[in-house]
């Protein structure tokens, strides 16, 4: 036990660590937005009457949910250039997080839409609203409310998963930490600190999600 803790390196590196936090949050936010778009589009496509489209969505969800994230991101970053598609680490990271989160979001959102009573849809149609209007104005909000805990949980998961993007040297908290560690050999202090920072990011997100939920889902249910 000849190891003496020395947090001075961490204190010196604090600005870069905080930038790393911001990068992680930015990466996660872009990934979540993409995941949400893929999720909603996937649910719409999953309900299409085109068989090939439904099959495509099912295949995509199966592929993503049954393979490791690290392999997915390596595929995008190292394999795609061989067929002429080279992406920078940040774009690759956002794409990987979006595709991965999107596959899970499809399943979650689908569950939410299915939880809506068919009578709600019929009432909207009977009033003369179109299918798209019924989805946006009548189905979406209650469906979102029903799946809010699982969807936001998935988003926090996605944020933490973004640390894996350090494997392709995308700029985010874990890769910043790796650089500091290799410069100073202060592994314990560095990883101890970013553990705390990830915890803080998750906690911040949970707070944000619950504030949003209280404001947006402000209607009583039975």
């Amino acid at each position: 036990m000849g190891y003496t803790l020395d947090f001075s390196v961490v204190i010196d590196a604090l600005p870069s660590l905080l930038w790393g936090c911001l990068a992680t949050i930015g990466l996660a936010q872009s990934g979540m937005s993409l995941a949400l778009v893929i999720g909603v589009a996937g649910v719409v496509a999953r309900g299409s009457n085109q068989r090939w489209l439904r099959g495509l969505v099912i295949g995509f969800v199966e592929l993503i949910r049954n393979t490791p994230f690290l392999v997915q991101i390596f595929f995008l970053f190292f394999a795609l250039p061989h067929i002429g598609l080279t992406l920078n680490p940040t774009v690759t990271a956002i794409l990987a997080l979006g595709l991965n989160g999107g596959a899970y979001a499809i399943e979650i959102i689908r569950g939410g839409v299915q939880s809506i009573d068919k009578g709600q849809i019929e009432a909207g149609l009977a009033l003369g609203l179109h299918k798209g209007q019924v989805f946006r104005m009548i189905v979406l909000k209650p469906a979102l409310r029903a799946i809010y805990p699982s969807l936001t949980g998935q988003f926090i998961m996605l944020t933490l998963t973004s640390s894996i993007c350090s494997a392709i040297a995308a700029y985010e908290l874990t890769s910043v930490a790796q650089r500091i560690e290799s410069d100073t050999f202060r592994s314990f202090e560095v990883y101890f600190t970013i553990t705390g920072l990830y915890l803080a990011i998750s906690w911040l997100m949970m707070t944000g999600f619950s504030v949003f939920s209280r404001r947006y889902f402000n209607y009583p249910t039975r």
Binding site: G119, E122, A123, A126, G128, Y219
Partner: peptide, 24 residues
């Protein structure tokens, strides 16, 4: 769509389970 829209806007319906929109 045209005939369905035209008819639905002239026909009101009341359901057994009310089907009010809970978020409004």
């Amino acid at each position: 769509t045209r005939s369905v829209d035209a008819v639905r806007s002239e026909v009101g319906m009341v359901f057994q389970n009310f089907n009010l929109f809970p978020h409004m």
